[in-house]
Design a protein around this nucleic acid. Structure first.
Lengths: 210, 210, 210, 210
DNA sequence: GATGAATGAGCGTTCATTCAT
DNA sequence: AATGAATGAACGCTCATTCAT
């Protein structure tokens, strides 16, 4: 079995496609542009992916796998809730720098208008972290470490909301500027301080007690 | 037929275009569909707007004006911080139900990939509420009512982040499903309880003291 | 209602499309080629016809209408069977000269491989003449004017077979040459003599008695 | 010719290609499908045939050879004209059932639009049977057994026309349906009766006298 | 000015052909 | 010499934009 498309080229297809989807959305992305920037012919993409949709799904899967890895790395470091949150935030910052396109693509996905498709995507993308966050918070809840009046699933949602906005702030131009507007370049650009602030806000929000 | 477009017709263009853009995204929206549902010809749209992009921007401006109005109404009701937050949240929920298209438009804007353009949009859209929120929090900060270790501008950002995610959850299919995944339909569908939970989380987060 | 496409241009679309389908078959025909040779843009064809298939059907309908007219003109001239046959043959010769593309397209249709579609086309194209021929022959049969041992529907089929081959011989290059090979250019080119020969063969074949 | 492909494989290419061309037409047939069903690679086909067109021509030649064989077998059985005709028809029916693809290939050739090429093909394909039929009829003519007013070459053409339509009716879906439309499924499906009817029509047509 | 039919570049996709292995 | 993955021109079709009316 011979292969003229090297693994690098195959990876380039996904990478460049992800960037294109992230930049222009699903409809706006063009196969010929993707092929060109990946340095391959249009036709060969169809050897690896049935159609545009399947290529898109492959990009999504790749990015989800990456995010899952980042999240599980952060989760496995053990420690108490504050440490876990701190770890999630700092790893997120790294991930956003390494692969901003993943988060931009993710943001594009959330603009999906087809309700059924949107549900499907949400289930794939959100369910794993929802489950993890809810479990952690439920435990802390039962241990009486967080505000008893706060539903742990709502708490998980608010926590994820803040995480998600952080992702966007580090990957999407609009949200990056928004962070600048709110915090000024000095604070916004100081990742360590932003991390501290966010950890504090979240722990406060959950009513966390050591 | 030689007559000028009435103001109603002009408004209809923006209104219908906003719905189309919100529903199908920038690329997915079609000028002929917009013209048809607005009851005008395709050609006349080009008399008022240079191209699709400019029409989109006009819709964006209209949406932003609406959102500003909602927010400033909510803000002007006076009262202390908890009341203001509660008011903002509940007004937002009403607005999201009445005009989800405006919030979806806002969401569309944030996908802008061109950095300069994104900055420009962010400056226009975010600055007013950033200023307002920061002022309120700064005052509370100075009065010692909120966590002294929390930068008031970061606090304003986190607060706005949570607000924004709430908007999305009530207007975009993806985020609606996401809220279901996190909280279950029962809690997610109970707006009053979600409001309570969010107010609590935010006040906690800010370390608010009466 | 304004029209930039004149009736001539609309007719040109059908005419050139018919030629293209006749020349290259359904699959081989290209919309851009048709548009170009008709002097219109590709897009406008889709204003008049939903898709390639519908354009093709319009071409078929046009040619069937023409053939029906030719056949009914020939049929209405009255007279006995020999006269009718003679009339059909000579009118066919004229029709083949005026619109060879109709017959070539018709020949292309018969290569259709999709069984259901082929049935559909056959029903549309063949049924009218089948009915007419069978009626005439049945009457002649009942009057004892044609060979009693010959089923009138089989007789109609054989008659139509010969007619169809005559159409092809006057419109398709292959069949034209075939006629030359069989009869020589002198006889093949002498339409009057070919007509005489064919009338004689058919009347003989049916066992016609005055 | 140096070759690694076995003769079986080479034959398979032609056989499978013929089926594909017959089934889907020239444009519709796909090289990769042919290669796959013949159990060879796409590339090797281009070692034996310059391009798709040349492969098609090779299939045509093979088909023609088969048809010639069938016809000459039928012709060589000797006997008088009625027997010869009956033999040709019944052998044709068998051949059409066994290898409808050959007849469909023949039908495909006749759609050739390029005049010079069409002439060339007609000369190759039609000349032998034309010569044979004309010779037989000329003899019968001279013996006074057939209608003196009928030119024997025209008679041969009409005879071949009827034969050809019979081939089509037994191998091409369109013509099969056409026969049903004319004769009904009962008669059309009864090969023996159709044979009788056709023999009768032809002998009548030629004015044959024993 | 308002109209909407016409335009044509560009889309996703296919497949005859090539060529590195 | 055989392979089959890669190529890229060409397809049917769409839709933002133009312009004759």
């Amino acid at each position: 079995m011979l292969k003229k498309l090297t693994e690098d080229q195959q990876a380039a297809i996904i990478e460049k496609a992800t960037c294109e989807f992230a930049e222009k959305g699903y409809k706006g992305a063009g196969l010929s542009g993707i092929a060109k920037s990946a340095g391959v012919s249009v036709g060969v993409i169809y050897k690896y992916y049935k159609d545009k949709e399947e290529l898109f799904q492959a990009c999504v899967s790749k990015s989800i796998a990456y995010l899952d890895e980042v999240l599980s790395n952060a989760g496995q470091e053990g420690g108490d809730l504050p440490e876990m949150i701190r770890s999630l935030i700092s790893q997120t910052q790294v991930a956003c720098r390494e692969h901003p396109e993943y988060f931009r693509m993710y943001h594009q996905i959330t603009t999906e208008d087809d309700s059924e498709h949107a549900k499907h995507m949400a289930a794939i993308i959100e369910a794993p972290s929802a489950k993890a966050y809810k479990a952690v918070l439920k435990k802390a809840h039962e241990e009486g470490r967080i505000d008893g009046a706060l539903d742990s699933s709502a708490g998980a949602l608010f926590f994820d909301n803040l995480m998600m906005m952080l992702h966007y702030s580090y990957s999407c131009p609009y949200y990056a500027e928004r962070m600048n507007i709110y915090c000024g370049k000095k604070l916004a650009g100081n990742k360590k301080r932003m991390e501290d602030q966010m950890v504090r806000f979240i722990l406060n929000g959950l009513g966390y007690q050591e």
